[in-house]
Amino acid sequence: MNLPNKLTILRALMVPVYVFFMLFPAENELLFRWIACAVFCIASFTDFLDGYIARKRNLVTNFGKFMDPLADKLLVCAAMICMIPLSYLPAWYVIILISREFIISGFRLIAVEQNVVIAASYFGKFKTVSQMVMIILLILQIPALNLVTTGFVYLSLALTIISLIDYLYKNRSVLEEGGF
């Protein structure tokens, strides 16, 4: 197993660690939040790092193509789901963001059946980065950054919807050929 794939597996394994520190009731809640933030930041960095190493060293594998986006979705979705019981995000918001991930994943499955590879778009990449920044800001709950945090909440929602429309529009032939 190559280094990018190990980093991807590490990211997936960090998800329950993040959830534990984010939701476990502790005497020192602030310490646990900082640990959760550190775990999330490290896991998010592995997302960038595994892709960079895989492309630079020509280590792209079928396992990585499958597992990397799955680990990303696990991390971001788990992080956002943790925000609901803490009242940092409303459930409807998280449902919209997670629904987009399911729609795109299903869309990619249809494309694979047609031997079409759907590359990540810039909107999709910006969406991911905005969600990761939003999650970090929500974890930290810094009062002086409330306006910035709110801005990233709305930006992430907008980019989620825009990237969904962009993927579907640019790859509408996949749907047409799939009998939709």
Rank of each mutant, 00 (worst) to 15 (best):
I142C: 09
V94K: 04
F32A: 03
P69A: 10
V148F: 08
I103H: 12
F66D: 09
V148G: 05
A43H: 03
C41Q: 10
P69N: 13
D50H: 06
A144T: 15
V153H: 00
I95K: 11
F24L: 01
M14S: 03
S105F: 14
L23Y: 01
G106I: 14
I53S: 03
N62I: 07
P143A: 12
I95Q: 10
L49Y: 09
M134S: 07
I81T: 07
I35T: 06
S173C: 11
A43N: 04
G124W: 01
L86H: 09
L137M: 11
L30I: 13
S130M: 08
I81D: 03
Y154A: 12
C77N: 12
V112C: 08
P25Y: 07
A36M: 06
G124M: 05
L30W: 09
E101D: 15
F24K: 02
I139N: 05
K56Q: 13
E101W: 08
A43Y: 02
N2H: 02
D166Q: 10
I135V: 14
Y167G: 01
T149I: 12
V39Y: 00
W92K: 14
N5H: 00
L89T: 02
M1K: 00
G179M: 10
L86E: 10
F48M: 13
L140S: 06
L75M: 15
F102S: 13
K127G: 05
T61Y: 00
